[in-house]
Amino acid sequence: MGSHRRLAPSGFARGAGAAAGFVSLAAAVLGAVPAAAAPHDDTRAEVDRLYEEAEKATEAYNKAEERTDALRRQVGTAQDAVARQQERINTMRDALGSLAGAQYRAGGLDPSLALLLSADPEDYLDKASVLDRISTHQAGELRELQQAMRDLARDRAEAARKLGELEKARKAVAAHKKTVEKKLAKARRLLNTLPDDRREAYGRASRSDRSELPGTPAASAASAASARAAAAFAAARSALGRPYIWGANGPGGFDCSGLTQWSYAQAGVALPRTSQEQRYAGRQIPLSEARPGDLVAYRDDASHIGMYAGNGQVIHAPYPGAPVRYDPVGMMPVSSVTRV
């Protein structure tokens, strides 16, 4: 019986084995590249998420700030009403005080007038019997004063209510501000963990603040749907390169809705402050019909907004660290296009 010994590998076999080993090693090394890159990709995805959440909080901050401004004006109006009513009451008291003085010099002070000039005549004024002691003219003046005092009490209550709402609104503004700052700080810390080349390349390659680069819109706004849209588009173009500053509406810096609000203000059009409100500031049209100056809102909640610039691009304020610039209109899901 022959023996079944394992033959020694030939030179070819040894080479093939070495090659196979090299291929396996290369595959292992190449396979490790995505795994090594994955943490960076995860970091960029997390930064994107934080910027998106910060932008939503920024729009909530803008809405709360707008509400605070409105309440501040309402409080001022209510306080003015209180002051006017108090002045009217003081004038009426002075007039009735003169009447009381005349009655006293004539031989006595009418009890109803004496009570009126005391600290709290309201209870006595509510009693009909008082009207038996005074003339018809005096009764009319007393009724008028009584109504004025009730109006004053109402105005004071309204002013107090508005002040309470204002305080709540201020707290909401502070809370949203804190949320934005926390998310932006976390995003900055994450960005700083990326290698320099990846951090510098964080902005999409298609983005630019230079209008002369290929693919950017022509300088003319003649294709805008209206003269005001053309003027707003020209204003937005003039803001290219200015910094993103959350909560800002120009002229030195902008957040997304601040840029569109400021741009239309230069055209004499008052837009609401937030992107959610701006999406309803005109007639909604299909994206296929968009022309320069139209507003393009993004995401289902319209938490980001830009201005259509033609050639499939928008001008917008992207996020902190990125200037006002052109970007592809499809950079994120479009929720609506509004023609102001």
Rank of each mutant, 00 (worst) to 15 (best):
A35G: 00
F12M: 06
S10I: 06
R5L: 09
S3K: 10
P9G: 03
A19R: 00
M1H: 15
A26P: 00
S3C: 03
A18V: 08
L25F: 08
R5I: 15
A16R: 03
G2I: 12
P9Q: 04
A19V: 03
V23A: 02
F12H: 14
A37E: 03
A18E: 09
A37V: 15
R14L: 03
A20M: 11
A35E: 09
A18G: 11
A16H: 09
A16L: 08
P9D: 13
M1C: 04
V29W: 06
R5M: 05
G2S: 15
A8G: 05
S10F: 05
V33N: 12
A13V: 05
L25H: 00
A16K: 01
H4C: 02
G17L: 11
A13F: 00
R5A: 12
A19M: 14
V23W: 03
A18Q: 03
A36D: 11
A28T: 10
G2L: 04
S24L: 13
G11R: 01
A27S: 10
V33P: 01
G31M: 07
A20V: 06
A36H: 13
V23K: 01
R6I: 12
A19K: 00
S24C: 14
A37T: 13
A20Y: 01
G11S: 13
P34F: 13
A19G: 13
S3E: 10
G31T: 15
G21A: 14
G15P: 00
A28S: 15
G15R: 11
P34T: 15
A36S: 01
L25V: 02
G21E: 09
A32T: 09
A27F: 07
V33L: 14
G21R: 02
A35P: 08
M1P: 12
R14Q: 10
L7T: 09
A26S: 12
A36G: 13
A37P: 09
